[in-house]
Design a protein around this nucleic acid. Structure first.
Lengths: 142, 142
DNA sequence: ATTACTGCAAATACTTTGCATACCG
DNA sequence: CGGTATGCAAAGTATTTGCAGTAAT
């Protein structure tokens, strides 16, 4: 996604497109790796030496409040951020640590109500060993 | 569940049934409210004045490692503990904060594999407004 | 000029670690 | 006795807050 679209995305949600916000959202849009606050900060501080962690926290709070990005907790005790595209599930590999997006046609995803409760958000997360790590282990065994 | 069964549960998993472990697991089994570390600590310190937070952390770590209880993160940044009974989903009400267990016959729950990755754990969490809070709001509006 | 954004430093919250003591088989 | 569990205090990590400075409208 180019810079212009990101500015438009921010403005369409009534978020002032400051330089830092632009860079942080751009990072999230272009790195679909579910980064943590720290990862985002470390990646951007090279390019923006004046950036502070507080700004990363502030910006992410705004983006989450405006539902432009979402918080993901695939692993307990580790908040990650994800640019909210279409509905999807997450799978985290215990071996390599990569978080995969899973697009699965699941009846639960379209539910507006469950057992009488009104659903406005859901998180479906899986953990295990990813395809690559399974294959690597199999190759190693030969 | 009575004390004797809890001792047996611990011993069947090769966990020494010390007094503190017994009390902590007993709390989890009898309070199916998905408590946080702090809730567990505060509830038990009245009865066990010498209890320390470290012991609660240590014990929960052992219980999770032995898969007697599981960690639940229905809300980002808030680890809760749940005595692992049968497979189920969680729903957290944004208004009253209660975490409900949802038993739903979902195809995803029985999956051992998804898109080639091997699944050994899953977390399915919903958020929204619970039945009670919806009804309370409706009654208030009249 | 007024409002909003940023960044530092301090404060708070949560969790882990090291080590000495106490408990249990 | 010997290994394990416990508890305190300290360290570590993550996040929030207050406030002063800066930029934007």
């Amino acid at each position: 996604m180019n810079r212009e679209s990101i500015v438009q995305l921010l403005e369409s949600k009534n978020v002032q497109a400051s330089y830092h916000r632009l860079k942080i959202l751009e990072y999230l849009v272009n790195h679909r790796t579910h980064p943590t606050v720290d990862t985002i900060y470390r990646s951007l501080e090279k390019e923006i030496p004046t950036l502070s962690r507080t700004t990363v926290y502030n910006t992410l709070k705004v983006l989450v409040a405006k539902k432009i990005v979402s918080q993901v907790t695939v692993e307990e005790n580790e908040v990650r951020y994800d640019y909210s595209g279409s509905a999807h599930l997450h799978f985290k590999c215990r071996k390599c640590g990569v978080v995969y997006d899973i697009f699965h046609d699941c009846e639960l995803l379209s539910r507006k109500e469950i057992e009488g409760h009104i659903v406005d958000e859901y998180h479906i997360n899986f953990r295990g060993t990813c395809k690559k790590c399974v294959e690597a282990a199999r190759a190693g065994a030969n």
